[in-house]
Amino acid sequence: MSEVAKKLRQTILAISHKSGRGHIPTSFSVVEILLAVYNKIRHRPVEPLWDGRDIFILSKGHGALAHYTVLAEHGYFPAEDIFNLGRLNSRFGCHADRLKVPGVEASTGSLGHGIGLAVGMALAAKIRKSQRRVYVLVGDGESNEGSVWEAVLVALNRRLDNLTIIYDDNRSHSRGLQIIDPASNFRGFGCQVFEVDGHDIDAIKDALGIPTDSVKVIIARTEKGHGCRTLVENPYEWHGKIPDAKEYTMLMEELDATTV
């Protein structure tokens, strides 16, 4: 685990413990993906609406806490602000509001919406003949929603080679409707698919950089709760659970023990 990924996980734990809000395991599964994306895309934290920017959409909106910490790491706002997560007058909710948080391009939460929005944004870039690229992170559980696959069909039909779908394959839905072989599913639709270790920032960046002539899909194999053994072993119990003081210390110790 990289130093920055570990630091952001510590921040996520601290925010969740202090605020009493947040989805820790799902946030832990996407930290490296978000770090890789924001390292790769064109964006200006001091000018979030810069016209030359690429766009990132967090379709699995419950990963917002990880998104906030990565945006803060890039200077969109101070990380201290996030500690008010979920409070009455906070800018930061457990699902992000684009009108409140700089750098957030769409308010998401209900699953299966962000990818359709991303397809519309990518289509807009094509119509304008813009170089803008659009990246969208969808979850494996989210992909139970039919609208995810509708959006993929439309993206392929419109030949949106400026769209990259990153699929967080954290196996979060093994107790429900788990998609067993998402790479085959996306390939079957006609996407160009790349599979990577979703906790290897360099591998994700490499996959993001590969040019394609169709919709690109990156299957990021991740672990829900990555970095804390307790979270990895009990992802359902911890999906929306907030650590008390003892658990917070325990999770921090587990995280500290992770090799950097």
Partner: peptide
């Protein structure tokens, strides 16, 4: 032709795509 799209029979996605286009000024 670049402002006319028959997206098919997928009303949910059609609305989301429209919102995405709107976000970009269309």
């Amino acid at each position: 032709p670049d402002r006319f799209y028959n997206l098919g029979i997928c009303e949910n996605t059609m609305v989301s795509v429209a919102a995405g286009l709107s976000s970009q000024g269309f």
